[in-house]
Design a protein around this nucleic acid. Sequence first.
RNA 1: GCCGGGGUAGCUCAGUUGGUUAGAGCGUCUCACUCAUAAAGAGAAGGUUCGUGGGUUCGAUUCCCACCCCCGGUACCA
Length: 485
Amino acid sequence: MNKKRFYITTTLPYVNAAPHVGFALEIVQADAIARYHRELLGEEVFFNTGTDEHGLKIYQKAIEEGKDPQAYTDEYAAKFDHLKQALNLSYDNFIRTTDSYHVAAAQEFWKRCAAHGDIEKKIYKTKYCVGCELEKTDSELEDGRCSIHPNMDIQTVEEENYFFKFSNSQSALLELYARNPDFVIPPSRLGEIRKFIEGGIQDFSVSRLKRKMPWGVPVPGDPEHVMYVWFDALVNYVSALGWPEDTKKFEAFWGTKELPNAIQIAGKDNLRQQSAMWQAMLISAGLPPSRHILIHGFIISGGQKMSKSLGNVIDPFEIVERYGTDALRYYLLREVPTFEDGDFTIERFAEAYRANLVNGLGNSVSRIVKMAVLSGVDTMYEADFAHDPAFAAFKEYMDRFELKKAADGIWERIGNLDKKIDETKPFKLVRENPGAAKKILRELIEEIWKIDYMLKSFLPETSKKIEAILKHPETIVPLFPRIDA
RNA sequence: GCCGGGGUAGCUCAGUUGGUUAGAGCGUCUCACUCAUAAAGAGAAGGUUCGUGGGUUCGAUUCCCACCCCCGGUACCA
């Protein structure tokens, strides 16, 4: 019997700005889930992330900086390593949408959709502001006028584009949702997308004229066009697995129509692309749908969106530099609701750090290990955690991707350590009844091992530190230093 | 405008079949202890009773209606 395969992928951040804490949330959530499946469940995990590197904005940005677009994206992709280190990420694959195998896969995907009759040429009407000399989207216009040049009429520009026949998929999508009530998690987001699809859907354009915007994947059989960045970028979730060449690997991780296996995680702004458009593309290409689309919220700061002008932007690198990787991971995984918007301010962060990591986890480990050393209690432990009832509860939450609730359970156990010490007072008891005190301390040590085990997915570095301490208890140092605000 | 989510202690939030004195964590105050990172524990205060106004009901934070406020989306920005 083969090991169970597990696949999870983040969305690919678009590389026109430095990674911010919002993407950090997504990739840390994915990392915790991946580690859980890899290390605690022993599954064979494929954890994918990468960068989305085509499209107009990147093209413009590169030109702006006087660079070749490929060189610009190369630089950015290299920077991603900083994020990997800063957040201690365990992804197995890093895809760049400019990788040649991805480009080839995107073209094959296109051909399959075309063969299925879902791609056709149509006239695409764009709105064009002569003042800006730019095309505008409807949402950029106010009352049908450009907000920068309200005295000028918006012109309609027509060009030939390829369209994906999204409208063909309406019933198939609704059926997918009906068959899988947990297709999108949380369920409220499934309701949202279902309602959107029920309301009727329009075809969307999937190509751009190459002479206007050359930075994209060439459309097969038509040198005039490149793929619109959406289409190409979404294909990464399967090209990362070697599709279309490596059908074995693809099937093992992506799953089959009967047993889809792919977990995707995305922000709520990506609900439509991931749970509807991409699924429609998969259906068209004859591939299995995803298994779950996990939708997380946004990180806001002080009740407002982060923005440079408000000065409330949280830089993940700064936090890590000051408090350490696991402090940030802790905050993102437990202090932010898993599926809803969460607030992130330095004040709240510092408070959570002190209360739960310094005073909570760190101090509990210190006092127990110190007592164990003073009383000569063995700090090694080998156990089958799988049969621990509390671990079963933890597992249940993790299997439902309820990361915060799972973490809450761990911290409840940490709190119980202190409660037990206070009730039994082993530090006092050791003078009257050393045997009884040792027995209690031994139980506390075992409990730390179990907590440590559950912590592996969330705080991998801390988990290693705890193990090192338990192996060499005489060398104990604080897990989380006090940091003055 | 429309669609979705939300308005419960200072803060962050639980509260799914409507039922006695509405909960947790953090923060605050008091007390106690000393094994620990000047830390951990216990107790207490804190909600004009759960956005506002109606309604259904013996009884509603929980159901219905209207309204107010906040947030997101409103499709080619990836």
